[in-house]
Design a binder for these strands. Structure first.
Lengths: 110, 110
DNA sequence: TATATTCATCGTAATATTGCAATATATAAA
DNA sequence: TTTATATATTGCAATATTACGATGAATATA
């Protein structure tokens, strides 16, 4: 059906999945990496940096904005994007907590 | 088009995205959490535990197997699944490295 | 004001994902 | 061998995602 049954899962499970889903595209990974590297923010040379059309990049930026991971600031005709440090730390913590659990002890079936 | 242009991204970017994409569904998050909680492995009571039909769970398990995050072991008519600790640690490290970078210093445009 | 530049939005085609019923497969038990 | 049980696979419908051309909105410059 293409429609995820979010109702049957916990808030935490849905949150982790939503965040992971947004990171689950190489263009968005590339955008995050680029914004992290150039500490001061970056505008639409992301379009040149990454090899996708401008509307496509704009769409990916929108998804990153939707979960609050990045922010945009209008500067003349261009828009300057950067990481939202608070949200970034929050997401980081969420993943560390998810993965931080001890991994399966070898006393099971495999 | 619905088709990701993987060619234009680095291996690392594609890897991170692929892993995140698999985690980007609450059912798969729930499966991982459940397998982590019950240290010894678990079979298809995942179907009862999570509220999705058996073929759907089977499909999600397949995706988790594909990236090597879980393993299945046939035990009679049932199959016992568990986390692959090595792969789990590898994935953990990859995410920590990705998020581990210092977050954007507040000297940019936003 | 007219034009150029930058970015967002809309519309759309191609493909992917989600979920399930039906069915196949494999093993255990009778 | 037959039947029951557990899981995988297939096929399909509904929806989501990806990518881009065309266009719109906003600001800067001539």
């Amino acid at each position: 059906m293409g429609l995820t049954k979010s109702e049957i899962f916990t808030d935490t499970q849905n949150q982790i999945a939503s965040l992971a889903k947004v990171i689950g595209h190489p263009a968005r990974v590339a955008i995050i990496q680029h914004l992290l590297k150039l500490n001061s923010c970056i505008c639409g040379d992301l379009v040149d940096e990454i090899g996708l059309a401008q509307p496509t990049i704009s769409q990916h930026l929108k998804e990153l904005k939707n979960i609050g991971l990045i922010e945009g600031n209008i500067e003349g005709t261009s828009v300057c994007y950067c990481i939202n440090p608070n949200k970034f730390d929050e997401v980081k913590k969420m993943f560390i907590e998810f993965f931080g659990q001890k991994s399966c002890i070898k006393d099971g079936c495999c």
